[in-house]
Computed example of a mutant assay.
Amino acid sequence: MSASKLLQISLIAFGIVFCLVYPLAIVWPSGWAWHDGPPATSQYFMMIVGVYATLGIFLIRAASDPIANRSLIDFTIWSSVVHALIMAVQSYSPGAHTGHMLGDVPALLLVAAVLGGLTYVADRSSYGTKS
């Protein structure tokens, strides 16, 4: 399977997961919610849900033509890296939810690594150069 096809599949898969943050927090709060109580009781969480659901929809749309949507993919890669680094630093502060930080940081870095690697290989193959 080509890197371009894998990139398209990855964009759809990550897009779906980003769209499902709220439902996942309802069925698996210890893995997806960053606060006690129902998901809708946290204004912070609802803001994150809105941002990630919007990003998820646009990632799914970007899968139809990843080259034309390169800036969105780059934003997703770099914002995931920045988010992961901030969360990693915050995980050392008193009272931090270390379990979530340890799970979320690798997950965000996985998104960045997969999309970054596949974008790099797809770009190189589209220009006729070998990796």
Score class of each variant (00 low, 15 high):
103 G>M: 02
129 T>N: 11
65 D>N: 15
110 L>H: 06
83 H>V: 02
20 L>A: 15
26 I>T: 09
117 G>H: 04
39 P>W: 03
92 Y>N: 08
5 K>I: 10
102 L>E: 02
96 A>E: 06
73 I>D: 00
12 I>E: 02
42 S>I: 07
39 P>Y: 08
62 A>V: 05
83 H>W: 10
75 F>S: 03
125 S>Q: 15
85 L>E: 04
18 F>N: 04
18 F>P: 01
130 K>V: 14
127 Y>M: 03
34 W>K: 06
17 V>S: 13
80 S>T: 05
10 S>Q: 00
59 L>P: 02
16 I>A: 09
78 W>Y: 15
10 S>C: 03
56 G>W: 02
60 I>V: 13
98 T>E: 01
24 L>C: 03
103 G>F: 00
39 P>C: 09
7 L>W: 02
74 D>W: 05
95 G>F: 11
128 G>K: 06
28 W>R: 07
33 A>N: 08
112 A>E: 01
37 G>C: 14
127 Y>S: 08
50 G>H: 12
45 F>G: 00
96 A>S: 08
17 V>W: 06
55 L>D: 08
36 D>W: 11
92 Y>L: 15
52 Y>E: 07
54 T>E: 00
65 D>P: 05
35 H>V: 00
129 T>E: 14
120 Y>F: 12
43 Q>P: 00
54 T>L: 06
3 A>E: 08
41 T>P: 01
44 Y>T: 09
87 M>N: 02
99 G>I: 10
61 R>W: 07
126 S>D: 14
19 C>S: 13
125 S>H: 13
22 Y>M: 09
16 I>V: 14
70 R>S: 09
112 A>V: 04
85 L>P: 01
13 A>E: 01
112 A>F: 02
25 A>K: 15
113 A>E: 04
117 G>N: 09
97 H>D: 15
127 Y>I: 08
56 G>S: 08
52 Y>A: 10
38 P>C: 07
106 P>W: 03
104 D>P: 00
26 I>G: 08
32 W>A: 12
120 Y>E: 15
114 V>C: 15
110 L>F: 10
67 I>F: 12
119 T>M: 11
62 A>E: 00
27 V>T: 11
48 I>H: 11
97 H>I: 03
108 L>W: 03
92 Y>H: 09
9 I>E: 11
64 S>I: 07
129 T>K: 11
61 R>Q: 11
71 S>T: 15
52 Y>Q: 10
21 V>C: 05
78 W>M: 12
118 L>P: 01
35 H>P: 10
46 M>C: 12
68 A>P: 05
43 Q>Y: 00
127 Y>A: 09
2 S>P: 10
100 H>A: 06
93 S>L: 07
16 I>W: 03
107 A>M: 10
